[in-house]
């Protein structure tokens, strides 16, 4: 299972893992996806489909389950574990109807006072003709705006790649956690290299300056918690990783659910409101 990543694991004991090495861990084909985690973290999971306007996007999975007995709404970007799954989930790159499904389920959760848990795992929102026609920009924008005022707790967690606006659409939350090796970035390192140096192959170099790791996000005040992964990455021990995730979710949810909703919404707004560095 750990074939080509065991090298990285050994390395980590001697020195810090580089951002690029972490990206390679995240892209390991055996890295657990949301479909692996759901049965390990939740019980009674029911998948719910469709945006009620256009269709059902396989890149975003939604449903209701229980977290230690408490009903929660689960919304997640779905990476495939093989080519068939990836075809069905479009390599976790959502179309507008995916974000609209997510928002529909979020409002449903709001109505029934269920907390929402979002799992981010996408290279980015899909870039295509149909996505543009159906308003990819509008779909993401509306997600950002409506999650900000959603009157129920929202917890987000980056499982693997957090690619740009497509990730942020599920990232407006009361608290953001990242798996230790996960990344979160404004643009893919490849895209960054191709714009800045006109050379997409300088991906590794881009990783070095973009500050995309969980530790970067923590120090920038964007993520609140790093969830540890087993030596070498989550694929080496999905059960332990799932336990770590569940522990974080239970702890955080208890904290957030105890809050008055107006306080929660103000804190959510201010979590994002304070991000930015400028002089005046």
């Amino acid at each position: 299972m750990a074939e080509n990543m065991s090298g990285a694991a050994n390395v980590s004991q001697e020195r810090e893992i580089t951002p690029f090495e972490r990206l390679m861990i995240v892209r390991n084909k055996n890295r657990p996806t949301i479909r692996d985690y759901i049965p390990l973290i939740f019980t009674d999971f029911f998948e719910l489909h469709g945006d009620r306007f256009y269709g059902d996007d396989g890149a975003i999975l939604g449903g209701i389950g229980r977290l230690e007995g408490t009903p929660v709404t689960i919304i997640a970007e779905v990476k495939g574990r093989d080519i068939y799954e990836n075809k069905a989930s479009n390599f976790a790159m959502p179309h507008p109807e995916g974000y609209r499904k997510a928002l529909r389920l979020a409002h449903q959760a709001e109505k029934f006072h269920r907390p929402v848990i979002c799992f981010i795992d996408t290279p980015g929102a899909f870039c295509g003709v149909e996505a543009e026609k159906r308003g990819q920009g509008e779909a993401i924008a509306r997600s950002l705006a409506e999650f900000m005022t959603l009157k129920t707790p929202v917890i987000s967690l980056v499982l693997g790649e957090g690619g740009s606006g497509g990730a942020l659409a599920l990232g407006v939350c009361d608290e953001l956690a990242m798996l230790e090796n996960a990344s979160y970035s404004v643009i893919s390192p490849r895209g960054f290299a191709s714009i800045l140096w006109k050379d997409p192959s300088r991906e590794e170099e881009a990783c070095g300056i973009m500050r995309i790791t969980s530790h970067d996000a923590l120090s920038l005040g964007i993520c609140e918690e790093i969830i540890p992964e087993p030596e070498g990455g989550a694929h080496n021990d999905p059960e332990t990783t799932a336990e770590n995730i569940a522990e974080f979710l239970v702890k955080t949810l208890n904290k957030k659910m105890a809050k008055d909703i107006d306080v929660l919404l103000n804190e959510r707004y201010n979590k994002f409101r304070k991000i930015g560095e400028f002089m005046e």
Binding site: M148, T149, V172, V186, E277
Partner: peptide, 18 residues
């Protein structure tokens, strides 16, 4: 988004939309 500000620029999308 302005990529020279990395993740901080991405978050401006959430901030303004909020």
């Amino acid at each position: 988004a302005r990529m020279q500000e990395g993740l901080v620029s991405l978050m401006q999308m959430a901030k303004t939309s909020g």
